[in-house]
Amino acid sequence: MSNAPDPRELAELFHAVSRTMRRRTLAQLEPWGITPHHARALRSISETDRARLRDVADRLRIAARSATEVVDALEAKGLVTREPDPQDRRATLVSPTEDGLRLVEQIDAARAERNAEFFGALTAEDREALQRILGSLPLD
């Protein structure tokens, strides 16, 4: 008889951690009025000078229509701008504004603090083991 944890129990713990992190992320982003999805998109856009809308969709693994909706919301908040791609009239380029770049910095700083606090409950050895274990799981 094995003392190994039941995979169902592991899955439940994993989901509980994921829900906790998501709930904390939502609360943290609330003062800025953006969702985690918007924050991911803004970070992705800010990593390039100008990104094609199609590339944003690909990086976020969402449909082009969904990327358009996300960019619409970010543009309405003054966090990104759009312009036609001079290389391809059918394509749109998205760029972060100065406000968008500042917000990414603020979100990253708050996220680093939140993650340090959350994972600070683990020893350094446990964090290393967790990283190794999670890195070993098959991801889509």
Rank of each mutant, 00 (worst) to 15 (best):
D99H: 08
L53T: 06
R89W: 05
D55N: 09
P5L: 12
V94H: 00
V80F: 02
K77V: 04
A110G: 04
E30S: 07
H37S: 15
A41P: 07
E117P: 07
A112E: 15
R24C: 02
P86S: 03
E105D: 14
L79I: 08
T68Y: 06
E69A: 14
V70A: 06
D140S: 13
F14D: 15
G120T: 12
A109C: 08
R54M: 11
S18T: 15
I34K: 05
A27Y: 03
A116D: 15
D58S: 09
D99S: 13
L10F: 05
P31S: 00
Q87E: 13
A121R: 14
P96S: 12
S18D: 15
V80D: 03
R89Y: 10
S136G: 07
R114D: 12
L79K: 09
R90I: 03
H38M: 14
R23K: 14
A41F: 05
V94E: 03
R40N: 15
G33P: 03
P86E: 01
L103G: 01
D49A: 14
L101V: 13
R90T: 12
R89M: 10
A67R: 02
V70C: 01
E69T: 15
S95F: 02
T35H: 09
L139W: 10
A121L: 13
T35E: 05
L74S: 00
I62S: 06
S46E: 07
V56T: 09
L137P: 00
S136E: 13
R43W: 08
L26K: 06
F14M: 13
Q106K: 14
P36F: 02
E113I: 09
T92H: 04
M21V: 08
L122C: 07
R43N: 10
P86H: 03
A16E: 15
E69M: 10
R102M: 09
S136F: 05
A110F: 00
S18F: 12
T81D: 12
H38S: 08
S2M: 12
A11D: 13
A112M: 12
G100E: 03
V71H: 08
K77G: 08
T48Y: 11
N3Y: 14
R54L: 09
L137K: 04
I107F: 01
T97H: 09
L60G: 01
A73G: 11
R24A: 07
L101P: 01
F14K: 13
R102Y: 06
R19L: 13
E9M: 13
D108F: 02
R24V: 05
D99Y: 05
E113H: 09
L122K: 05
S2T: 15
L139Y: 13
M1H: 12
R82A: 01
E9S: 13
L26H: 05
R114H: 12
P31G: 04
R43F: 05
H15R: 15
G33E: 11
Q28W: 03
A39E: 04
L137N: 07
L134I: 11
R114T: 11
D6N: 11
E30K: 07
P84A: 01
L53A: 00
T97M: 06
I62A: 02
I107P: 00
I45Y: 02
T35W: 04
L74Q: 08
R52Y: 00
L29R: 01
K77N: 09
F118N: 04
L122P: 04
A39N: 08
